[in-house]
Design a protein around this nucleic acid. Structure first.
Ligand SMILES: [Zn+2]
Ligand SMILES: [Zn+2]
Ligand SMILES: [Zn+2]
Ligand SMILES: [Zn+2]
Lengths: 160, 160
DNA sequence: CTTGATATGTTATAGTATTACATTTATCAA
DNA sequence: TTGATAAATGTAATACTATAACATATCAAG
């Protein structure tokens, strides 16, 4: 399980690889990877934490790329619709995907201390939830799975 | 697994039992089960779907029990803080708990067709999510688990 | 080119939630 | 009973999140 977000890593590669993967995917699938969409994705890729739409909009505004809410929300809508970014419902905020292009059922680990968010995988149709759904006759189509707690770094800090 | 919410059942008992259980719990634990708190709980108990804070506020206003947002949010804060109600993050809305008083890790099944919401149980530390968290060194303290799809009733309707 | 679809600019507005502070009510010890 | 403290409520104002609507511009395909 590759749960990126808490460990040290080559973060420039996150940004470059993510952008490149999305560019390629869009080219292959006839999607328009416009300047705003690309920039919003880059902004998200710059951090492994979730950003609010207005936080993103502020940066766009500074760069002269747009100043009104729909600018941010439209780009985010595009990115989330195609799985390049995810909304963290608990935070009303957005984060870049770490499994670009792969068809996946994301789940998130949110650190309450440092706000880092790691994306991981949790098939909602497995485990207790899946069983409960089947027993109830409920067909799961998608699921919001967001765990909150302490990331390894913040746990060490507290212990030390 | 008792996944209340989709099946036919004695719904008056839901309301009465829920209110009684909360009243008893509050009495035992020195909590003030005030008129507003009780009324908001009753409003939530009346339906097995999630209600927005302003939807609740509208009802309170009609009944002369309050007219400003904090009235609803304070009651909801009390109810959720003690586990008598839960917030459905996906819907920005609230629902009465179906396991009053029991210490539990709730998960929800949300029907996209009829908006019914059923509460069930899913220990976040089990299964794929728990394993991913342990491997990442992340300590889960709570989790938002909200599955969306079709409830048994709406599935039948579509099939028929 | 032309045409239809897609994306952007912009204004306004809807929906969700909290801050702040004055007032009232409940709790509890003296 | 009373006075002190804490908890809850009343109310106005504001902050934060998200979408509707419509005009304009750009793109993709024939
Ligand atoms: Zn992802
Ligand atoms: Zn942390
Ligand atoms: Zn519950
Ligand atoms: Zn349904």
């Amino acid at each position: 399980m590759d749960t990126i977000g808490f460990e040290h890593h080559d973060h420039d590669a996150c940004i470059d690889d993510g952008t490149a993967a999305v560019a390629a995917y869009c080219a292959r699938n006839g999607l328009q990877f416009t300047r705003q969409r690309r920039r919003v994705l880059e902004i998200l890729l710059e951090e492994h934490r979730a950003l609010g739409a207005y936080e993103i909009l502020d940066r766009l505004r500074e760069e002269g790329l747009g100043s009104q809410p729909p600018v941010a929300y439209r780009a985010l809508d595009f990115l989330t619709r195609h799985g390049f970014a995810h909304k963290i419902e608990r935070l009303n905020a957005f984060i870049a995907c770490t499994h670009m292009g792969e068809n996946h059922a994301p789940a998130f680990l949110i650190c309450r201390a440092c706000s880092a968010v790691a994306e991981t995988y949790a098939d909602p149709s497995e485990g207790v939830l899946g069983r409960a759904a089947r027993e109830a006759g409920f067909r799961i189509e998608r699921a919001v799975i967001e765990a909150e707690g302490l990331c390894p770094n913040c746990r060490k800090e507290r212990a030390g």
